[in-house]
Design a protein around this nucleic acid. Structure first.
Ligand SMILES: [Mg+2]
Length: 568
DNA sequence: TTGTGTTTATAGTTAC
DNA sequence: GTAACTATAAACACAA
C-alpha cells in the first residue's frame, strides 16, 4: 500500500530522481553577512566557540529573517509546485550530475553527502526553522517545508520523519503552540520556542542537548515541592519513560475531558507559558527583588550569553501578544497579566529561576486548549498571533535591534576575546568571556575541562550511524576509511580560526555552488573531523570546531539554496 | 479525508 | 547500572 504523502512540493527521493534534472528552489533565505560574508569567519567571533551560531537567536535572527511565506500556501495547496525538482537546496548542478552517476553505482560509492542525514537532531532542526522565520513561529507545514528546502535528505520518507517532528513539537516543552488569529484560518497552530528555552545547544552539539528544557506543569495536585526548572522529575521524562504499569494510578483518578493522562499533560500552549509567567511574577515579585537586582547586575556583564540572545527574540511573542491585548477588550486583569509578562522579560536572566513552586490559580482544564470555559476563550483571544500591521525599523520583530542589542552586550563582555575564541584557543587555556554565564555541567568550559574525548567518540558514532543510514532502510558501505592528510587536518582545525586558507571553511562563502563551502564539502569535513577525533588525534579534538562545522554545513545549505533560487 | 496534535511504547546511545 | 536524551512507530482524537 502506497503511503500517502503530505502535501509537499517535494516528491520522494525516488520520484524526484526520475523526474529529470531541472529543478527550482522556492524561496530565498538570507544569511547573516556577519556570519557568512563578514570579514572574519563563518562563525565570526560573536558565536564564540559554542558552535551554535544559527541557534542562538541573534545570528539566526539577523541571518535568516526571510522565511518565504508561500511555503505554507504551497504546502496547504498540496500541488507539487516543483514537479521536477531533484536538486534543490544543497545540491549543486555538479552534485546532481554526480548523483545520477552515483545512483547507477550505488554499491560502489561510500558516501552521498547530499543525502546524508544532516548532523542535527529533530529538535535542532525545528529550532533552526523557528529561528529562521521572521516572527519566530511557524506552522507545522512550514517547518516541514523549511527542513526539506535546506536538507535534501528529508525529502525522502516524509511520513516517518514528519511524524517524529510532530512528536518532538508536542513532546518537548521547548516548543509551544501559538493559536492562529481568526483572520488567518487554517489547520494547526503556530509553533514557537518557549521563551525560557534559551540556547539549548550551547555545547555545540546539535544531536544531543546536555539537558532537555523542561517546564514544571503541576496541573494536578502533585505539588512535589520542586523549585528547579531543571530538576529531573518533570513531566517530560514521565511521558516517555513511564511504563504502562507505571505508578500513575493516584493522579489518574483525576481525569480531564481533554486528556486521559492528566499527570502527563503537555506544556504546549503559549497561554500556559503566560499563565506561569504571570503567576510567578505576581507571587514572586517581592521575593525576587533582591535576587532580581543581583541577576540584573550579573546580566550587565554576562547577558550576552546564548541564553540571553535566545530569550531576547522570544520577547517578541509576548510583545505581539501584549500589543494585541491592548487593542482588545480583555478584562483588566488579563491585560495586567500580559504586562507583567512583558515586564518580566525585561530581565531575561530571571527566566531561569521562574516556575518556582508555582501553583496554578486556574483549573488544569482551563489551561487546556480544548476547554470550553470562558477563561479559555479569553485566553485564546489574547494569544492569537497577529501579523504586524506595518514592518518598520521600530518593529520589535526587526532583527537589527537584536543585532545591536547583542553587539552592545558583546562589547561589554569583551568582544575581542570572543573574536578569537572559536579557534582552538582553549588549548591555550583561554576562557570564554561568556562561559561563566552558564551553569550547565556540559557548558563549553566544562567540556574543555573534562576533555572532549568521550564526547567526540559519542558524536563520531552518532554520525557514523547517520552516514550509514543516510537513506532509510538503505545501508551504505564503509564510512570511515578516509585517510586524512595533515593538511586536511590543519584545514579543519583552522575552520574555526580566522586564518584564511585555501579550502578553509572559515573564509566567506563565494556564490559558486561547487566550492569548499558547499554543504556536501562542509559535511564531508564535518565527518572527517569526527573521524580524526575517533582516531584519538588530540590536536583535532575540538568541540568548537565541530559545532562550527555544523554551522558551516547549515550555512552552506542556505547558501546553495539561495544560489539555486537565484538561478531559478 | 487528511493534516494536526497528543500520547504511549520501545530501543539505542550517552552522561553521570 | 541508572538516568537522561533522542529516534521511531503507532494508536488515537480532533478539526479544517
Ligand atoms: Mg511542546
Amino acid at each position: 500500500m502506497m503511503l500517502s504523502s503530505p502535501p509537499s512540493k517535494y516528491q520522494t527521493f525516488q520520484q524526484s530522481f526520475t523526474n529529470g534534472m531541472n529543478g527550482s528552489v522556492p524561496g530565498s533565505y538570507s544569511m547573516n553577512p556577519m556570519a557568512i560574508g563578514g570579514p572574519s569567519t563563518l562563525h565570526s567571533g560573536m558565536n564564540g566557540g559554542y558552535g551554535s551560531s544559527m541557534l542562538n537567536g541573534m545570528n539566526a535572527a539577523a541571518g535568516m529573517n526571510s522565511h518565504p511565506t508561500h511555503h505554507s500556501q504551497m504546502s496547504v495547496g498540496g500541488s507539487p509546485a516543483y514537479p521536477g525538482i531533484n536538486q534543490g537546496v544543497g545540491l549543486s548542478p555538479n552534485m546532481a550530475l554526480s548523483m545520477c552517476i552515483n545512483r547507477r553505482t550505488e554499491k560502489t560509492y561510500r558516501r552521498n553527502y547530499t543525502h546524508a542525514k544532516p548532523p542535527y537532531s529533530y529538535i535542532s532542526l525545528i529550532t533552526m526553522a523557528l529561528q529562521s522565520s521572521q516572527h519566530k513561529m511557524m506552522t507545522l507545514s512550514e517547518i516541514y517545508q523549511w527542513i526539506m528546502d535546506l536538507f535534501p535528505f528529508y525529502r525522502q520518507n516524509q511520513q516517518r520523519w514528519q511524524n517524529s517532528i510532530r512528536h518532538s513539537l508536542s513532546f518537548n516543552d521547548c516548543f509551544v503552540k501559538v493559536p492562529r488569529s481568526p483572520d488567518k484560518p487554517g489547520k494547526g497552530s503556530y509553533w514557537s520556542l518557549h521563551p525560557d528555552a534559551g540556547n539549548m545547544f550551547e555545547n555545540g552539539c546539535y544531536l544531543r542537548r546536555q539537558k532537555r528544557f523542561k517546564c514544571k506543569k503541576m496541573k494536578f495536585s502533585g505539588d512535589s515541592g520542586d523549585t528547579d526548572n531543571n530538576d529531573n522529575s518533570s513531566s517530560e521524562e514521565m511521558h516517555q519513560q513511564q511504563s504502562p504499569s507505571g505508578s500513575l494510578s493516584p493522579s489518574k483518578e483525576v481525569t480531564s475531558p481533554s486528556s486521559p493522562h492528566p499527570h502527563t499533560a503537555s506544556y504546549n500552549d503559549i497561554s500556559d507559558v503566560m499563565d506561569d509567567k504571570a503567576a510567578v511574577t505576581q507571587q514572586q515579585s517581592s521575593v525576587e527583588q533582591n535576587s532580581h537586582k543581583e541577576l540584573t547586575d550579573q546580566s550587565s556583564t554576562a547577558d550576552a550569553s546564548p541564553n540571553e540572545r535566545m530569550l531576547h527574540h522570544q520577547q517578541n511573542i509576548y510583545s505581539h501578544l501584549h500589543q494585541q491585548t491592548a487593542d482588545s477588550n480583555l478584562p483588566h486583569q488579563e491585560q495586567g497579566r500580559l504586562s507583567a509578562v512583558n515586564n518580566h522579560h525585561q530581565n531575561t536572566e530571571v527566566e531561569n529561576i521562574q516556575h518556582s513552586n508555582h501553583v496554578r490559580t486556574s483549573s488544569p482544564v482551563d489551561a487546556n486548549q480544548h476547554s470550553n470555559s470562558i477563561t479559555t476563550s479569553t485566553r485564546e483571544r489574547q494569544n492569537y498571533y497577529h501579523e504586524p500591521l506595518l514592518e518598520s525599523k521600530s518593529d520589535p520583530l526587526s532583527y537589527p535591534s537584536h543585532h545591536s542589542f547583542y553587539l552592545s552586550q558583546l562589547q561589554a563582555a569583551g568582544a575581542h576575546q570572543v573574536q578569537h575564541y572559536p579557534g582552538l584557543s582553549h588549548h591555550a587555556g583561554a576562557t570564554h568571556p561568556l562561559a561563566h554565564s552558564f551553569s550547565h555541567p556540559f557548558s563549553i568550559s566544562s567540556l574543555m575541562n573534562a576533555g572532549g574525548e568521550m564526547q567526540s567518540s559519542k558524536e563520531m558514532r552518532a554520525y557514523q550511524d547517520a552516514m550509514q543510514q543516510y537513506s532509510y532502510g538503505t545501508t551504505t558501505q564503509e564510512v570511515h576509511h578516509d585517510n586524512i592528510s595533515p593538511q586536511q587536518i590543519s584545514t579543519l582545525e583552522n575552520a574555526t580560526a580566522s586564518t584564511p586558507d585555501s579550502g578553509d571553511v572559515s573564509t566567506s562563502i563565494p556564490s559558486s555552488s561547487s566550492n569548499a563551502h558547499s554543504p556536501e564539502n562542509l559535511q564531508q569535513q564535518y565527518y572527517q573531523m569526527h573521524y580524526n577525533m575517533e582516531s584519538s588525534n588530540p590536536a583535532v579534538s575540538t568541540h568548537d570546531g565541530l559545532g562550527s562545522l555544523a554551522d558551516a554545513y547549515y550555512q552552506g545549505c542556505v547558501q546553495q539554496h539561495n544560489s539555486n533560487a537565484a538561478i531559478a
